[in-house]
Amino acid sequence: MLQEKEFIKELLNPKTQNQAFKKLLKEYQKPLYNHIRTIVLNHDDTDDVLQNTFVKVFKYLNKFKGESKLFSWMYRIATNEALTFLNIKGKINGISSETLQKKTIDNLKADIYFDGDEIQFKLQRAIASLPKKQQLVFKMKYFEELKYEEISEILGTSVGGLKASYYHAVKKIEAFVTIN
């Protein structure tokens, strides 16, 4: 924790800021990329959202109070950016974000940056049939392999609530894949 405090100081000090921010980028670009990708699904959109996320992180660094961890704060910004992005993209295309998600999944088959077999498509379709919150929890736990404690800090939901969400998500996904 002390280390993180020192690091935040470096991030806020104009003299050390650039170096520190590069360090932050190096450490978080991959996990945040994966997090955003599981939400927006295609690479180009992920690239957009990821860049915006880091620009926002930089912009709001001085407002970061240190009440939560840097890690969960950044994941929160990334999650918000990704969800807002989907809403706006849906709006521009005149469709709901649910329809957009289904369309994007259908497009995955032609996506050169997606290498999936039948079961992976089915899993994506099954996830898309879940309520939004359960989708997020499932993706963060199953694909990103985050701990419940970490997800709890990011989403502001109790660990118990998350476990229940994950359990329901798994049950629904299993039913979906079995039938389809």
Binding site: K26, Q29, H43, F54, V55, Y113, F114, Q120
Partner: peptide, 26 residues
């Protein structure tokens, strides 16, 4: 079951540069 998402090769090589550029611009 893996997510199946592939990250384009060398994507992260340019990312830091791009973001640093955006930040200094802002």
């Amino acid at each position: 079951i893996k997510s199946g998402f592939i990250i384009p090769e060398n994507y992260f090589d340019h990312l830091t540069e791009n973001i640093m550029q955006k930040i200094t611009k802002e």
